[in-house]
Write a protein that binds this DNA or RNA. Structure first.
Length: 567
RNA sequence: CGGGGUAUGGCGCAGUUUGGUAGCGCGUCUGCUUUGGGAGCAGAAGGUCGCAGGUUCAAAUCCUGCUACCCCGACCA
């Protein structure tokens, strides 16, 4: 590629619209341009990266036995009514009408369509298993699109759907896909973790997420030091404390705590560590009455765990202040288990503590020296909190670390939710009709590109892992317009690189060295050689790896270049 | 959806309080000079000041309405 033909458009200044690194750098490098909220055009430079990723995904999916198809982005409402998701999806789904007032959506996902597709041709179990995938544009009308491609509304996704005769075969393919995803991410050269996950709204049992590690990641991951356990903090299990609750040591004491309504305030006022306090959270119970959840002051409620508790209403609803006042006689900020007649569910950690500080159910008053069983009934005990760094590994040895990640892939075992709802069935060997269990497997292609930048950049710009880079190598001639020998030597090298299948770009834009180098670093090309009159005289080229601090002189010629970039 | 903010040339911004010739830096174009890390000089192009209405002799600036975009929140007792 000759760079002057690529319509490169880099900027020195960071556009005001972006405030995470990947978004800023993609805009500065001219990989994408914003059209509207959560809508982006990919430039020729951006396309080169996108297509790299797509090619690797395709080749691994094909190698894993999946079959590529392409389904419509626009889908009839009727199909979604049949699965029951037309109403469930709510505002996430972009709904449109055609000229005859027929209803459609712009597909946020393709379970319905793929089942419909399979239904037409699938008659016998002998045709199973099968796994169809596509690389397609999806639209999800996010409440708040943000962070550029990270949470765009329109985005590119690789989604795959598998169909099986039985759960065992689904399990086999699920692991096949998980292994395929690992191969894809290994090939892309990214640092990632696979974690157990909540399957969320899509339904189904087993599910794992694939996260690119990056400090700016939106998700928190709990990963054990011995490597045996990894889970999204949303779902990571907290092992119950391994020691019994100590005996009460303190008398119950009423303390006036005027104006204190937060754990921080309470700790400052009483000079107490937060783990000695209990926070009280009131939520609606499944019977409609308020339920008191108690956690250690330094812990955080995990919504997903709470929601799954049978005594708690789903979706999780925090009780309104009026009903709290009625049930407790006090406002939030002064609540506690003492004297509350309703259901109390305490997290393991707070249930294993003695001599706690709790709200007294009287505004501006707290109790110190509170003990379960003595000052209130023994609570129900459950795992309600988010794991924190240092918690015991629930599955093996060691403790948990918390890392941040960007979710770029997700594999699910869906079961027969969709094949049943849409009445897909096949005849089994015994002549019985069966709804084939399904798996579904997604990779956010466009998000993956952004995530790679979050993981890999420096002050000068993007540092692509070689397999994602828009070019493998750039040849930078200096002063080619006034030194014919330089121009000639650069052309010669360029032709040789092409002949050797090196994905090379020739920077023939005629820029001065400063801006030229800055651009090449910004767009993240992994390898650079400089051709100059000075070097030619000495028979050398200058080579520099993108992340190297120093350039080095190498003998002029294709072989020394190959040795550097293919090492 | 609630809260906050912004909208002025391709990009980043000032000007709005106190109404009076629309400005700066970067970028772009032309010429000359310069030439290994974002060059210098000279000249030039480019703006319905988000949209609509209003007040006024006069509106980027004041008033009313609207739109778009960005940020924060949706673990808070």
């Amino acid at each position: 590629m000759r760079l002057h033909k690529l319509a490169l458009s880099t900027t020195r200044e960071t556009p005001a619209e972006a405030d995470i690194v990947s978004h800023q750098l993609m805009l500065r490098a001219g990989m994408i341009r914003r059209l509207g909220a959560g809508l982006y055009t990919w430039s020729p430079l951006g396309m080169r990266v996108l297509q790299r990723v797509e090619a690797i995904v395709r080749s691994e999916m094909n190698a894993a036995g999946a079959l590529e198809i392409l389904m419509p982005a626009v889908q009839p409402a009727e199909l979604w009514r049949e699965s029951g998701r037309w109403d469930e999806m709510g505002g996430l789904m972009l709904r449109i009408r055609d000229r005859a007032e027929r209803e459609y959506c712009f597909g946020p996902t393709h379970e319905e369509v793929v089942v419909d597709f399979v239904k037409r041709d699938l008659a016998s179990y002998r045709q199973l298993p099968v796994n169809y995938y596509q690389i397609q544009t999806k639209f999800r009308d996010e409440i708040r699109p943000r962070f550029g491609l990270m949470r765009a509304r329109e985005f590119i996704m690789k989604d795959a759907y598998s169909f099986h005769m039985d759960a065992a075969d689904l399990d086999r393919e699920y692991h096949n896909m998980a292994a395929t995803y690992r191969r894809i991410l290994d090939q892309l050269g990214l640092d990632y973790r696979v974690v157990a996950a909540d399957s969320g709204a899509i339904g189904g049992a087993l599910s794992e997420e694939f996260h690119i590690l990056a400090g700016s990641g939106e998700d928190e991951l709990a990963v054990s030091t011995d490597g045996s356990y990894a889970a999204n903090v949303e779902t990571a299990i907290v092992a119950p404390p391994d020691h019994p609750r100590p005996k009460p040591n303190a008398e119950l004491n009423r303390v006036a705590t005027p104006e204190v309504t937060t754990i921080d305030g309470l700790c400052a006022f009483l000079d107490m560590p937060p783990e000695q306090t209990a926070k009280a959270i009131v939520v609606d119970g499944s019977d409609g009455d308020p339920v008191l959840l108690v956690l250690r002051g330094d812990h955080q409620l995990n919504r997903i765990k709470a929601e799954k508790h049978e005594a708690i209403a789903a979706p999780l609803t925090f009780s309104d202040v009026k009903s709290i006042k009625r049930a407790f006689g006090a406002d939030p900020g002064s609540l506690g288990p003492a004297g509350f007649p309703g259901a109390v569910i305490a997290d393991h950690s707070v249930a294993a503590r003695a001599d706690l500080v709790v709200g007294a159910n009287e505004n501006g008053v707290h109790l110190t020296g509170f003990n379960w069983g003595r000052d209130a009934d023994e609570p129900q005990v459950a795992d309600l909190r988010n794991v924190v760094a240092g918690d015991a590994n629930p599955d093996g040895e060691g403790t948990l670390n918390i890392m941040r990640g960007i979710e770029i892939g997700h594999v699910f075992q869906l079961g027969d939710k969709y094949s049943r709802a849409l009445d897909l069935n096949v005849l089994a060997a015994d002549g019985q009709a069966v709804h084939p269990p399904m798996g579904c497997y997604g990779i956010g292609i466009s998000r993956l590109v952004a995530a790679a930048i979050e993981q890999c950049h420096d002050a000068a710009g993007i540092c692509w892992p070689a397999p994602m880079a828009p070019f493998e190598l750039v040849i930078c001639p200096i002063g080619a317009d006034r030194e014919p020998a330089v121009a000639e030597a650069a052309e010669q090298l360029y032709a040789q690189c092409l002949a050797q299948d090196i994905d090379v770009a020739l920077d023939d834009r005629g820029l001065r060295p400063g801006p030229m180098f800055a651009d090449i670093e910004l767009i993240g090309v992994p390898h650079r050689v400089v051709v100059s009159a000075r070097g030619l005289k000495a028979g050398t080229l200058e080579y520099k790896g993108r992340q190297a601090t120093q350039a080095e002189d190498i003998v002029f010629g294709i072989e020394p270049i190959k040795a550097r970039i293919r090492e």
